[in-house]
Design a protein around this nucleic acid. Structure first.
Lengths: 335, 335
DNA sequence: GTGATTTTTGAAATCGTTTACATACTATAA
DNA sequence: TTATAGTATGTAAACGATTTCAAAAATCAC
């Protein structure tokens, strides 16, 4: 491996001068600059970035914790973050937690071991008290998931409000027995949505049947299972508000298979407005999240801290959502 | 920041001994071990991994170059790689090239600058000669994309054969005027598929109309555009073989909008067998790639080199594909 | 108790950079 | 010419770990 010392020797100069050329310091004569550049060229020299990291005490890398890459919501979120990061010469370390507490802890330790300059959390398996501990090792920004306990910036959507609106929409469509499905039990996202859901039911004095709350559903396959579960109940719901378009899609597909009419027998609302929502038939009513904005703002906030040394503290960036109505809830003019 | 020196001081021992405890070296008395561990605990010490990387001359990180994260094909590929990497205590550095030559070059330099121990390429924008140059800086493995020019392992599918089979299937369905769409011009994947496509046409003495070859289509939106392009032609094709389920999906959606019947007016074959292929109506006939296997084998090959110091040379790992027939090409019993 | 052997520990070099400080050189002003 | 300021370069000490080598301590054999 060719090092700065080799370049220095070949150029007949000291390592310091070579380093100065490398970092565009002033006060290096054009002649020496040329000498150094020639030597670098000849030796095909590239600085070792591990050494630079050690010396400069920064990595120019941000860790992003996501549960899974295969959920489009997180893929698009990452894409947005990546765009901003790249523009600012920062690397992204993409970390898949697979909804696993242990894995998440390991990734959080990246901050401790100084492998990354900052960390963005998009979901979380551990208690907020535990996560709070890690804030002493480096900047953390929350995106999507959030908590007031952890004193850090949070970029998010008002999930309570969104769930409330989605549920109210179902009620307005004439649904009276509404089910709710979500993924992680502890997730703030799921809790908030459940709040909004309950609120809407309460406002209309509708019952809240415990067996209509389904947890641990994440993807299309889980959605199919959830639908099967619902159809086996003695008292079936006439609508379901799901935590994800993936799940809703699985439900619609299984409903078709079982000749359950959507929305006639069962109206379905998804979440995220993923491409799939407008592809499946019937089109899926869903909540459109400002994914791109969320990713962008989260990364920008991180950059403020990392690059511009801004102090980091609790700060809530609330982004707007939109209820997209499609046929999966259209009970008045279904064919 | 607390360093190994702090621990050493508190334990009343040397840095060397602390390091030995850290790395489970033999020949450290239980008593000193305890002393060191206590000190680490008290000081909440964690080794700085940048320093370890510099000293050990390895990063335990593999870079994976993918064009985009939002294409499920690459998301699933990454997931498979991630699984194997994690089991072997390796980190993944996910790099989005966005089909950009410059970006790809920058990521390739990660090898030069010793930021990663190895690199897996899943697509490629630069000439193979350029990529060959980088093999001197560290191990490269090809996955999906491939080339015989670069003397490195390649895990892939026989795309020529797959395209041939898909096209023949269309011909067997009675199609005679078949279009072909792909993304990257230089990509080996696209070239191979075009080969297979041409071969099948030739075998059946079918014409190959230049205006039926559509390039630069990647996603659902591009698929819509491609369909619009085709419908505007004076001589329209009666089938299209696309390079991706995303594109095929876009075409189906736009076809519906324009009242073009699939497969009656236009039969469509996709590629990848993404979830979407069985969700859209009509169901999409497509080639199922062994994504999980591809990712797994590629990462395993890399690990052989990194962890077990196996010599790396050209080696082709060919994996099987499957033609999944659905309604988008079923011209005999469509309703 | 002595010498040989083995185990345990520490001092110092190393990985490849950057930078504070010292020094040498150049230019300017009196 | 000399003092002064400013510019260009080099020396050596970081950054935080690991490891070689040597020395010290413990163990063993007689």
């Amino acid at each position: 491996m060719t090092t700065i010392a080799d370049v220095a020797k070949m150029a007949g100069l000291s390592r310091a001068t070579v380093s100065r050329v490398l970092n565009n310091h002033p006060n290096v004569t054009e002649e020496k600059k040329r000498l150094v550049r020639d030597a670098m060229e000849r030796l095909n020299y590239v600085p070792n970035s591990t050494a630079q990291r050690l010396r400069n005490q920064k990595t120019d890398t941000i860790a992003i914790l996501v549960p899974v890459l295969t959920n489009p919501f997180f893929a698009y979120l990452l894409e947005a973050m990546d765009t901003v990061a790249t523009e600012n010469n920062l690397q992204l370390l993409v970390c898949q937690t697979r909804y696993d507490r242990e894995k998440e802890l390991n990734f959080l330790s990246l901050l401790k071991t100084k492998q990354v300059d900052g960390l963005i959390l998009t979901s979380s398996e551990n208690d907020w008290e535990i996560i709070t501990e890690f804030t002493q090792y480096g900047p953390i920004v929350l995106c999507n998931e959030y908590s007031q306990v952890v004193n850090v910036p949070a970029v998010r959507m008002n999930n309570t409000e969104a769930a409330y609106r989605a549920t109210r929409h179902l009620i307005e469509q004439g649904c009276r027995k509404i089910a709710y499905s979500y993924g992680e039990k502890k997730s703030s996202v799921a809790l908030e949505r459940e709040d909004g859901f309950r609120q809407a039911l309460k406002e209309h004095s509708l019952p809240m049947n415990k067996s209509w709350i389904i947890r641990n559903v994440y993807d299309i396959e889980d959605g199919r299972g959830a639908l099967n579960y619902l159809t086996k109940l003695s008292e079936r719901p006439d609508a379901v508000f799901t935590g994800s378009d993936q799940v809703a899609t699985g439900m619609i597909m299984e409903a078709k298979k079982q000749n359950i009419h959507v929305p006639g027998d069962l109206a379905i609302v998804g979440f995220d407005d993923q491409p799939i929502a407008s592809i499946i038939e019937p089109g899926l009513t869903t909540i459109a999240q400002p994914i791109k904005q969320m990713g962008t703002r989260a990364m920008e906030t991180m950059i403020e801290v990392i690059l511009h040394k801004r102090e980091l503290s609790y700060q809530e960036i609330l982004l707007p959502f939109e209820l997209i109505v499609r046929d999966s809830t259209n009970r008045f003019s279904f064919n």
